[in-house]
């Protein structure tokens, strides 16, 4: 529990807690390609991330309370795991020059559309910067979870998790 003080008191994990769990990419990895980020650091019985991945890049194994392990070589950043995660804990992030992108799950109304100017928030719900929606994917297989892509200044890449509701 000591590794999860922020999660169990503030409700959201700190960057340190997440890095300890080893499911976040490094800045160098983010500069190379889009990377899946899984913010799931408690042993709960759940494995749709593993079964949703066509590349077998996420492993939970047995028992299903294991934390996910990402194989970054295999991951193509297809994003199928984002709406598959019942905990809305998966995003895909990337860096291009001085801009960063995040693909994240969204289940609130009104539904943002491409071109919307949005406020980017960190894990504690604080607005850190402005962003713009560059894609909104509503495929049927997402089962009503929309996958949004937002672009924002690169310096906030590690903290940004979503947009203001």
């Amino acid at each position: 529990m000591n590794d999860r003080i922020s999660l169990k008191i503030n409700g959201a994990p700190s960057l340190e807690e997440l890095q300890k769990a080893g499911m976040l990419p490094t800045i160098e990895e983010l500069e190379k390609k889009a990377c899946v980020c899984i913010e799931c650091i408690e042993e709960i019985p759940c494995n749709p991330c593993e079964t949703s991945c066509p590349q077998n890049a996420i492993t939970i194994g047995y028992p299903i309370t294991n934390l996910p392990v990402i194989d970054r070589e295999k991951c193509t950043a297809c994003g199928l795991c984002i709406p598959a995660c019942p905990g809305l804990a998966i995003t895909i992030k990337s860096i291009q020059g001085d801009r960063a992108r995040i693909r994240f799950p969204w289940e609130y109304l009104p539904m943002p559309v491409r071109g919307d100017k949005v406020k980017m928030v960190d894990r504690m719900g604080q607005v850190l910067c402005d962003g713009i929606i560059i894609a909104a994917q509503t495929a049927v297989r997402n089962n009503k979870t929309v996958v949004l892509t937002a672009e924002f200044p690169r310096q906030f890449i590690e903290e940004i998790i979503s947009i203001r509701r």
């Binding site: 008191i9 409700g11 959201a12 905990g87 804990a89 609130y108 928030v121 604080q126 998790i161 203001r164």
Partner: peptide, 15 residues
């Protein structure tokens, strides 16, 4: 579950 609290916290709800 931490994943539930986290999605609420990021919406700006204090615990």
């Amino acid at each position: 579950y931490g994943v539930h609290t986290a999605k609420i916290r990021r919406a700006g709800v204090p615990f």
